Simulated scan of single mutants.
Amino acid sequence: MERTGFEKFIWNLTQRFTSVLDTSFSPEDYIAIDLSETNEELEKIDISSSESFAGFIDNYLKNTGKKVAFGGYTEIRKLYRRSELFSHLEDARDIHLGMDFWAPAQTAVLAVLDGKIQSFKDNANFGDYGPTIILEHSLNGDKFYSLYGHLSRKSLENLKPGQEFKQGEKIGELGTAEENGDYAPHLHFQIIGHLEDKIGDFPGVASRRDLDFYLRNCPDPDLLLKLRH
C-alpha cells in the first residue's frame, strides 16, 4: 500500500532504529508479540486480570530470551472488552492505534524526537491510559504529536506545559498496574497528526466506524522507530 504524505514525513525523520525506552535495550532485545483476538494462547489466561496478563508477558519474554515485547498497531483485541470505556455495544472500540512496549515497571521512557510538553494528565479510569504525556513536535513548520501512556504517577511530577525535551532524554517511566489503568506494565506510544484540542488524552483504540480517520491521523509508529522497517 502506498504511503500517505504524513507517513512519508514520519518515515524520513529517522534513519535507523530509534529508541523510545531505556537505551540499554538494543534492537536485539525486542521481540514482536501477537495480542490480537486470533491468538489462541490468550484463551488460556484471564485477560481481565492485569496480574494474569503480566504473567503471560513475562513467560513470553523468558521463553524467547528477550527483554521487551512490542507491537499492536491496528490489532483487534479482546482485551478492551473488560472496560466500559471501550465496550459500548453500539460502537465498540477494539482496534489498537498505537504501538505497545511491554517491559518492567520503572523502565525509562524517552522522547523519541525533540519536542515540548503539549499537555499531560492522569487518565485514571479503569482501562484508561493512567498518567499520560503528549509532546508537540515542530519541524519546518509542520506540527504533530507523540503520546506516551501508562506511565508512573511520578512521571507527571514537576512537568510544565512548554517544557522542552531533547530526543533520547528521559521524560518518564512505566507505571505499575495500580497506577497505569490496570494493565501489565507497558508503554502505549502513538503518533498523532491533529490533536483536535485534546488535553493530556487522545483515543488510542478505535471503532470500525471511525477507523479510516484514525489511520490517516495516527500512522504506524514503527515508521519512526524502525524496529520492523
Rank of each mutant, 00 (worst) to 15 (best):
P131L: 06
P185S: 01
D222G: 08
Q106G: 03
A184T: 07
H88W: 10
L139P: 01
P185C: 00
T176K: 13
F9W: 08
C218L: 06
S87V: 09
A177I: 05
G200F: 09
E40Y: 13
E164K: 15
I33Q: 05
D182V: 10
L79F: 15
L187Q: 01
G55P: 01
D201A: 11
K66F: 04
T38W: 10
G72N: 12
H88S: 14
Y129V: 05
S50E: 12
E196H: 12
R3K: 15
G71K: 13
V20Y: 02
E136N: 04
G200H: 09
D29H: 00
E84W: 12
L156C: 10
Q15V: 06
E40A: 14
L187K: 02
E178M: 11
R228C: 07
D46A: 13
G127D: 08
K166I: 09
G168D: 02
Q163D: 10
G5L: 12
R209L: 06
L159E: 12
L42A: 13
T132C: 15
L223H: 06
F17L: 02
H188A: 06
L223I: 05
N63C: 09
R81I: 10
R153K: 15
S87Y: 11
L187E: 02
L21S: 02
L89K: 15
N123E: 12
I45D: 12
D58E: 07
D46T: 13
E173R: 03
P185N: 00
E196T: 03
N123T: 07
S26Y: 02
E41N: 14
K198E: 14
I76G: 05
Q190R: 05
E136W: 03
S49K: 12
G71N: 11
T4N: 11
E169V: 08
P161I: 11
D22M: 00
S146A: 09
I171V: 09
H229W: 10
V112C: 11
Y80M: 12
S155R: 04
P104K: 00
G193W: 01
I10L: 08
S26H: 05
F56C: 01
R208Y: 02
Q167I: 09
R209P: 00
E40M: 11
P131T: 05
A54C: 03
M99D: 05
N217V: 04
E136R: 09
S19A: 09
K143L: 03
T18I: 00
L79Q: 13
P219R: 04
M99V: 11
K116T: 08
R153T: 13
S24Y: 01
G172Q: 00
L195R: 00
W11T: 11
G5S: 14
W11C: 08
I47P: 11
E28T: 10
E43V: 10
T4S: 15
S119I: 04
P104Q: 01
F126E: 14
Y129F: 15
T64D: 03
W102R: 02
I33P: 04
L21C: 01
D100P: 05
F165G: 07
H186R: 01
I199M: 06
A111H: 06
R153N: 14
L139R: 08
P104I: 00
E179T: 11
T74A: 13
I134Q: 03
I45M: 11
N12Q: 13
I10V: 14
M99Q: 15
F101N: 01
N140L: 07
